[in-house]
């Protein structure tokens, strides 16, 4: 039996190498779409505006002089935040001399935020 002429086998092997390279590039492109989706979704789900809103209204509330009036506002914030933004919010105000120490706590089950702010 005559021996097979196999000198072209190396060309075929090189072809395989190139096809592997293309496969890996396809994997990279495939994964990049999934990564992009995750990023945009997590940015949307992070309650940046909620926290900034709570912070702003807490600082504004610290300007209410009467403690009873302040408690009414705090109660409004706590109950509306729980119902409309699904977040546990607790605010406490401790007057010291002419300043006011405001403690802000925010937790929506995923993101937690705590701050102690002292009025100038």
């Amino acid at each position: 039996m005559a021996r097979l002429n196999d000198s072209a086998q190396w060309i075929i092997l090189m072809g395989f190498l190139v096809s592997f390279a293309i496969f890996f590039l396809a994997v990279v492109i495939n994964q990049s779409t999934v990564v992009g989706q995750t990023t945009a979704e997590s940015v949307l789900e992070f309650p940046k505006n909620d926290i900034r809103n709570i912070r702003a209204v807490a600082l504004e509330t610290s300007g209410i002089a009467d403690e009873g009036d302040r408690l009414i506002v705090v109660e409004d914030i706590t109950s509306i935040a729980q119902r409309r933004t699904h977040a546990i919010v607790s605010l406490s105000f401790v007057p010291a001399d002419t300043r006011m120490q405001v403690t802000i706590h925010y937790n929506n089950g995923v993101t937690e935020f705590d701050e102690v702010w002292i009025s100038p």
């Binding site: 779409t33 992009g36 945009a40």
Partner: peptide
């Protein structure tokens, strides 16, 4: 995996 929403879909919403 079927990616139903592309990575830039939510940018308009943001």
């Amino acid at each position: 995996t079927a990616v139903y929403t592309g990575g830039d879909t939510h940018i308009n919403d943001m």
